[in-house]
Amino acid sequence: MENNNNINSAQPQIPVQPVQAQPVAQPVQTAQPMAAQPAPAPAPAPAPTQAPVYAPAPAPAPVQQPVYQQPVYQQQYQQPYQQAPQYGVPAYPASQPAQPSDGFTPEERSARRKKANILCFISLALMLVPSTISGAFSSTIENMSNISEVAETVVSIFSALVGGSVIGAWVLMIIARVKYKESKFAKVLMWVYIGFFAAGLIAVALFIAMCWYITKDCQGF
């Protein structure tokens, strides 16, 4: 946006020089192919290639020398935004549909994808690491024959950390889903979490049913 604004603000200052340079440089060569194809799809493609044509053009024109001494203008002069009106062809509007329908440029999309992936990876780590650690130490915890107050406190803190990290994992996943709706990783992660949650509930239900079945058969013993 800043570049566009700079370009727009620079145009009133230097509009004359490049436009004057056009007819001097190649008035026929540039106009003819564009006139033959008024609004072609590849219109944006030739635009950047024409930039070098305009670069040497100011050389014979003495008026343009001070213009090229300005680095800002020289940089902007390479932009297709300024070249398009010089051709008299709607090259800039033709390049607009290249943007995706979600309104983001490819760079923005890439940045958003990276942010969503970072959130998802942190979420995955928060979900897996505490669960793995608690699973690894579960036998140790269960084998604590002498339950002291210190051990109970440690276990309470540990369970709070595990629970908090699981909640954090869900929250980060939901942030990724809400803020970066296009992220497929976040979408997959959400359904994986929901699947595990549902599987956990079903497993508990099956466990209860199994206990009921066993105790029913063992009645009287």
Partner: peptide, 20 residues
């Protein structure tokens, strides 16, 4: 989704304890 996860996990965290 957020509420149901927080409900179950907080409840389990509060009741989690080790006995003999």
């Amino acid at each position: 989704l957020t509420a149901i996860v927080c409900t179950f996990i907080t409840s389990l965290m509060v009741t989690f304890r080790i006995t003999e």
